[in-house]
Nucleic acid binder design. Structure first.
Lengths: 261, 261
DNA sequence: CGCGAGCGTATTGCTATGCGATACGACCGC
DNA sequence: GCGGTCGTATCGCATAGCAATACGCTCGCG
C-alpha cells in the first residue's frame, strides 16, 4: 500500500516520527486479519510489540472509546468512536458532499446499485453505497477495498492515468483470479483500459462477483488526475451486457463529469 | 459523551495512560468542529497542544495515511486509512453482519429508508443506512450522531432501559428544539417512552426533519440491554401517521427481535 | 510597495514519559 | 491439580517525546 500521497518509508524523519503513534495505529490495524474480537496478546503480535506496550496502548484506546470489550467473549474490538472519525472523513472530503446528491439522482434514474469509490494506489475503497431494491445480500460495506486492476472503477481510473503509472500499478498488483471470468492477462487488461479511454467508461462482467456487471467512470481533480469513480452495478439476470452499457454508460459519464473539478 | 463503557475520567490510571495516544486522538477529533480542511495551527488549538506537538503528531499521521493534505487548499483532512478502520469496526461488530441482510429484506419489503443505529449514551450513531428510491437529499452519512432523547431509535432504546437510566440520560441531554415539532418537555418524552414500551416500537413525527416520520425498535444483547435500533423512515407526503405505524410497526419489531441476542 | 502576522518547517538540549522486564493471580484444558 | 496462557500490576532506567526557539514563506493590510 505504498500510496504516492503517503510519505515514503525511506524518507521518514525520525526526529518528527512518533513511535507511540505508529504503534497505536498498528494496534488498531490488527483487526484486519481475523474475524471476531481479538485478545490483547493477538493484538500485540499483530502490531509486533510486546505485551506491556500493547497493554498501555489498549488501555488508553479503551479509555478514549476507540476500543471496546466484547460483552460475550471479553475480547477487544474497535470502538464506537471509530465511526465519528468516519463521519469526519466523509464530511471533510472535497468530493463526497458534492457526490452524494448526484449519486442519489443517478440511483433514482437508473434503479441500479450505485457506488462511489476512492483510489488508493493498488486498491479502491468504497466510500458510499446506494443499493437497489432487490439487493438482499450486501456483503460490501463502507471501507471495503477492492483491487484496482480488476474492478470497474479501478480500470476507469487507470484509464485516466499516464501509461507509465498504469504499468506500475498493474505490475505491483497481485493479479489473482476471483471468478472464472476475472481478466488477469496484462495485455487483455490493457485492452480493457484502452476501451475505457475510448468509451469514457469502464465495463466489467463477473470479474469480481458472478452474475454482476458494472460500468464505471472516473472522477478527476483540478489536475486531471483520477481520485474517485462512480459505479453502476447490474445483474446479468435482468440485462444483457450490450444493453446495460448502452443504457448506463452515458449517465455514469455525465455524473462523474459533474462532480469532477 | 461520557459513555458508561468508556472508563471514567476520574479512575484513569496514569501509569497505563499514554499521553501521546490521547493527544493523537484529540488531533483527529479536531475535525469535528469546522467545515473544510484544517491548518496545523487549528488542529493544535483544537487538541489543546502546542505547535511542536501537533507538528510531530500530524507528520506521523500523514506518514501513516491517517491524514492527507488537501490538494486545493494545502490544509489537512482525515486520510483514507480512516475508512479501513471503519471497515474493521463494521466487520468486527457482533450485530452488523447479522443485521445487514435483515435490513435489506426490511427495505425491500417496505420500500422505505431503513437505518441501523447504535446507542452511545446521549447520542445514537448511524452504522448502516439503506435509502429509498426517491431520497435525493441524503444529509446523513455513516457515523452521523443524533440525540438519543429526540430520535425514534433513541426513544426505542430508552424504552428498554430501567427508569433510573432513562432519567439520567434525559437530564444530562441538551434538549433543544430542532423543529417546531420536537418534543422537549420531560413529561411528554416520558409519555412517548411509555408508549414505546406498550407498542414495542417508538414513533416520532417531524421531530428532527420536517416532513419525516420514523418508527424504530430496539435491538437488545444477551443481558436484555439495548445496543442498537432499527429505523424505518417515511414521508408525510405519502403516508398518514396512523397508517404508517400500523404498516411499519410489526415488521420493524420483528426485524429487531430477529437480530437480538 | 513593504511590513508584519501567520503559516509550515527545522533543530536543540533536557527530562518527563513511555519503555520492557518482571511478577502475580485467574482461568482453562490436557 | 498442574502447565499454559490470559489479563493485570509494578518499577527503575534511558530513550522517546517534549517545548522553546529559530528560519523562510506567503498573504493581506496599510
Amino acid at each position: 500500500m505504498s500510496n504516492p500521497k503517503t510519505r515514503d518509508d525511506a524518507s521518514v524523519d525520525p526526529r518528527l516520527f512518533l513511535q507511540t503513534v505508529a504503534r497505536t495505529m498498528r494496534v488498531l490495524e490488527g483487526f484486519g486479519r481475523k474475524q471476531g474480537p481479538q485478545s490483547l496478546a493477538e493484538l500485540a503480535a499483530a502490531a509486533e510489540i510486546d505485551k506491556s506496550a500493547a497493554q498501555r496502548i489498549c488501555y488508553t484506546l479503551q479509555t478514549l472509546g476507540y476500543l471496546e470489550r466484547d460483552a460475550a467473549t471479553g475480547g477487544l474490538r474497535p470502538g464506537l468512536k471509530v465511526l465519528d472519525r468516519t463521519f469526519d472523513f466523509l464530511r471533510m472530503h472535497p468530493l463526497i458532499e458534492r457526490a452524494v446528491p448526484v449519486l442519489a439522482e443517478l440511483r433514482a434514474m437508473t434503479g441500479q446499485r450505485v457506488d462511489l469509490s476512492l483510489l488508493d494506489d493498488l486498491s479502491i475503497i468504497y466510500a458510499q453505497r446506494l443499493q437497489n431494491r432487490r439487493e438482499t445480500f450486501v456483503a460490501s460495506l463502507v471501507g471495503r477495498r477492492l483491487p484496482t486492476w480488476c474492478s470497474s472503477g479501478g480500470r476507469a481510473m487507470l484509464a485516466s492515468l499516464p501509461d507509465a503509472e498504469v504499468d506500475s500499478i498493474l505490475h505491483r498488483s497481485d493479479r489473482r483470479r476471483f471468478t472464472p471470468h476475472t481478466v488477469t492477462d496484462l495485455a487483455a487488461i490493457w485492452d480493457k483500459i484502452r476501451a475505457a479511454r475510448r468509451d469514457g467508461f469502464a465495463f466489467t462482467e463477473q470479474e469480481w462477483i458472478m452474475g454482476e456487471m458494472v460500468v464505471a467512470a472516473a472522477v478527476t481533480d483540478a489536475a486531471e488526475r483520477p481520485v474517485a469513480a462512480i459505479h453502476i452495478a447490474g445483474s446479468l439476470a435482468e440485462w444483457d451486457a450490450r444493453g446495460f452499457q448502452l443504457r448506463m454508460g452515458p449517465p455514469v459519464i455525465e455524473a462523474a463529469r459533474s462532480i469532477s473539478a
